[in-house]
Computed example of a mutant assay.
Amino acid sequence: MVQDMQIELDRLTDATRIQRLKAQTAGTHDTLDKRIMRAEPFANRERYALFLDVQHRFHADVAPLYAAAELNRLLPGLAERCRLEALRHDIADLGGVPEQLGSTTGPLNPATALGWLYVAEGSNLGAAFLRKEAAKLGLSDDFGARHLAGHTDGRGLHWRNFVSAYNELLLTEAEELEAAEGARAAFRRVHALVDQIFG
């Protein structure tokens, strides 16, 4: 497994770090996307509430990473990107009571944590499509779909700033492999949550 990942990393040496990470996690990411769409999270508000539960649990997992001093040093402005509170408001908007959740990941080394953050931040970029689907249910940036809202600076610019900082990190090849495994673990975590909550 590690040897296969090393071969893939060698093949992508001319790509940026984010491009390599995307390529290394594409299969796991694609499997998750298809599973989420099969769950029909935007069929009605009841299904969407289940989707919020998935998102809430995942973002509770990554919230400590957004608050970590070392990760904020590596990725300036990281703390303000956390969407956990927006999710809690979304759940309340739909009449739910958000649980007080802690992270289930346990301690993560910085490289592995960077992989989890890649998944969380990438999901915000993809949220533009989900936001349109939520609007069909009468939800908006101010009610029920706050966590899907783009940044005031623009969703694309916000992502590019993250990518730029990520690409400039000084990581060894071993750390890049750890980040890729962290990202795959994050995708698997969301997949497991979808299976658990949607059934």
Rank of each mutant, 00 (worst) to 15 (best):
G154T: 13
A135Q: 06
H158S: 13
C82W: 00
E133S: 12
G102A: 14
D141N: 13
S140G: 07
A135G: 06
H89W: 00
Y66I: 01
P98H: 07
A86T: 00
L148C: 11
D61F: 01
A145Q: 09
S140V: 05
L101P: 04
N124D: 05
A63Q: 11
H158M: 11
G96M: 12
H147Y: 10
E85L: 01
A69K: 11
L94F: 05
Y118T: 05
L94R: 04
G102E: 14
A67M: 08
L157R: 15
G154V: 13
P107H: 12
L78T: 06
D93N: 12
D141T: 04
G150C: 11
H151F: 12
P110G: 13
G122R: 02
K132V: 04
G77H: 04
L78E: 08
G144P: 13
L148G: 08
D93R: 05
L84A: 01
G156K: 15
A111Y: 00
L75D: 00
L157A: 15
G126C: 15
E85C: 00
N72A: 02
A145F: 10
L137V: 07
L117H: 09
G77K: 07
A113E: 10
A79F: 03
T152E: 14
T105G: 05
L148K: 00
H89N: 07
S123A: 15
S140K: 08
L130P: 02
G122L: 08
E121M: 07
A86Y: 01
W116M: 10
G96E: 13
L87V: 03
E80R: 15
A135Y: 08
V62N: 04
D141F: 00
Y66H: 09
L84K: 00
A79R: 10
R83K: 12
E85W: 00
L65E: 06
L87I: 10
N109I: 09
L108P: 09
G126N: 14
G96I: 08
T105S: 14
L130F: 15
L157D: 03
A68V: 00
P64S: 04
C82V: 01
K136G: 01
T152M: 12
Q100S: 11
L71P: 08
N72H: 02
G126P: 15
L71N: 03
A60H: 07
D93G: 04
L65I: 06
L117W: 12
L75G: 02
P107Q: 10
T112M: 13
F129A: 14
A67I: 01
L130R: 12
P110W: 12
I91K: 02
G122A: 13
A86Q: 11
E80L: 07
I91D: 09
A113N: 09
Q100P: 01
A120T: 04
Y118P: 09
A92E: 02
E133M: 13
A134F: 08
D153H: 09
K136S: 11
V97Q: 07
A113T: 14
V119Y: 12
S140Y: 01
L75T: 03
L139M: 07
A92G: 05
I91E: 08
T105M: 14
A113Y: 06
H147C: 09
L74G: 06
G154F: 08
H89M: 05
A92H: 08
L148S: 04
A149V: 08
A60P: 03
T105E: 06
A111M: 13
D90H: 10
A86S: 10
G122D: 06
A60L: 07
A68F: 05
L78A: 05
G106D: 05
